[in-house]
Simulated scan of single mutants.
Amino acid sequence: MSSFKTFKAKVVTAAALAASATLALSGCATGNDDAGDKIRIGIKYDQPGLGYQDGKDYTGFDTEVARYVAKELGYNEDQIEWVESPSANRENMLSNGQVDMIFATYSITNTRLKSVDFAGPYFVAGQDLLVQKDNNDIHGPEQLNGKDLCSVTGSTSAKKIQDKFASDVQLVQQNSYSDCVVALNAGMVDAVTTDDIILAGLGSTKANQGQLKLVGNTFTTERYGVGLPKGSDKCGKINAAINKMVETGEWEKALDKSVGESGFKYNQKLNPPKLDNSCSKPTQDSK
Rank of each mutant, 00 (worst) to 15 (best):
S2K: 13
F4D: 15
T13E: 13
L25H: 11
S26L: 15
C28N: 14
A29G: 09
D33C: 07
D34G: 05
G36S: 12
G42Q: 00
I43Q: 01
Y45N: 14
P48M: 09
G51A: 04
G51C: 01
Q53G: 12
Q53F: 04
D57L: 08
Y58V: 12
T59M: 09
F61N: 01
A66F: 03
R67E: 08
Y68I: 11
V69D: 02
V69S: 04
A70T: 06
K71C: 03
Y75R: 00
Y75W: 00
E77D: 15
W82K: 06
E84M: 11
P86I: 05
A88Q: 15
N92D: 14
L94H: 01
S95Q: 14
S95G: 04
G97H: 08
G97D: 05
L113V: 10
L113H: 07
Y122S: 10
A125L: 07
G126V: 12
G126A: 09
V131N: 04
G140P: 05
L144G: 02
C150N: 05
G154H: 13
T156V: 13
S157P: 06
A158E: 01
I161M: 05
Q162Y: 06
K164A: 13
F165R: 03
F165G: 04
A166C: 11
Q170E: 12
Q170R: 15
Q170H: 15
N175L: 13
Y177W: 09
C180D: 05
V182F: 06
V189F: 01
D190L: 00
D195A: 14
D196K: 02
I198W: 00
I198M: 09
L199Q: 02
L199W: 02
G201V: 03
G201C: 08
G201P: 02
K206T: 15
K206G: 07
K206I: 12
Q209S: 11
L212I: 10
K213Q: 13
V215M: 04
Y224S: 07
G225L: 01
V226S: 00
L228E: 01
K234D: 10
C235K: 00
K237D: 07
I238Y: 00
G249T: 04
W251P: 05
S258L: 11
E261T: 07
Y266A: 08
P272M: 10
K274L: 08
N277V: 09
K281N: 08
Q284W: 12
S286M: 14
